[in-house]
Amino acid sequence: MNRQEAAVEAAGLGMRYAWGRDHVLRDCTFRLPAGRICALVGPNGAGKSTLLALAAGLLRPTEGQLRVCGTTPGAARTRLAYVAQDKPLHPQLTVAATLRLGAELNPGRWDQDAAERVAFGSGLTPGARVRALSGGQRTRVALALALGKRAELLLLDEPMADLDPLSRHELTGALMATAAEHGTTVVISSHVVAELDGVCDHLLLLGQGRVRLAGDTDDLLAAHRLLTGTGADFGPHTVVEEHPNGRGRTALVRPGGALEGGDWLVEEPTLEELVLAHLRNPGAPALLTADATPARREEIAV
C-alpha cells in the first residue's frame, strides 16, 4: 500500500504533569497522514490541548514517542505553527508589531501578505494595540501569526471558539485555502464535532486521555452501522452502544459479518452520533483505520 507520509505519529505516548498526578494522556498510538484536515475531538479534559502542546514541542512527553513531520517535535519547530487555546499575544504591542515579531522570528519562512490578509480582514487596523482587541480579534491576530509562518503542519487549539459566524466562515475559508494551496496538514481541536463537519476529513477522538477513534472520517463512518430491530441479539457485530427503542433496540455496531438479511433496519450513523456513542461508552474498543495506524512501533521510535 502506498502510504502518504505521516504528519504526526505517536506510539505509546503518555503525559502527566507531575509525579503522583494522573496521566493526562496515556498509551496514545495513532498516525495522521500528511495533507489531512484533522478534527481532534474530545470532551473537556480529554487531553486535546496537551496532545497539541506535545506535538508543538512545548512539552516533553513522560512516556512513548512522538514524531512530527518525520522528526522530533523540537526539530520540526520551524515547520509547524501552533495557536494555543487562550491565544497568547503581547498586549503592549500593536497588531503591526505583532506581525513584525512573526517576521523577525521566522526568517525565510514568513509570508507577510498571507498574515495581513488574515489579520486585517475585518477592519482591524495595524496600529491597534493588542490589549484593546476583542476575543475574536485576538484570534484573528493569533491565526495571522500562524498562517504567516508558512508551516507544513498547523496545530490549532479550539481556534474558532471566540469568533462570530461571519469571521468563523471567513477564517475557516482562509485556513482551507492555505491547505488547498500548500498541502498543509491541519489539526483543529474542538469539543463540538458538528463545528468541524464538512471541514475535516480525518478524525482523532480522545476520551479520558486515550485514543478512541482515529482515521479518515469516511472510513470511520463506513466501519459503523446503526441497527434497529426487534431481534434480541446483534449477532457477530461489535456493539459500541445499544439502547431500547420502542419494542426493539437500536445499536451502533461495527459490522462483523453480513448485515443484509438480518431482521433490522440498517442506517449509516452521522459523525456526531459516532463520537457521542464512543464517549458515552468508554468500554467500547478503540478503532484505528489502516492509515491511522502507525507502522510497527520500533519504526517510529525516535
Binding site: R36, T172, G173, A174, M176, A177, A180, E181
Partner: peptide
Amino acid sequence: PTAREVVEATAVNPNTV
C-alpha cells in the same frame, strides 16, 4: 473555480472539492 477558490468561499475541506 480552483479548489482554493471554492474552499476560501465555502470553508469546506479541499479534499472534498
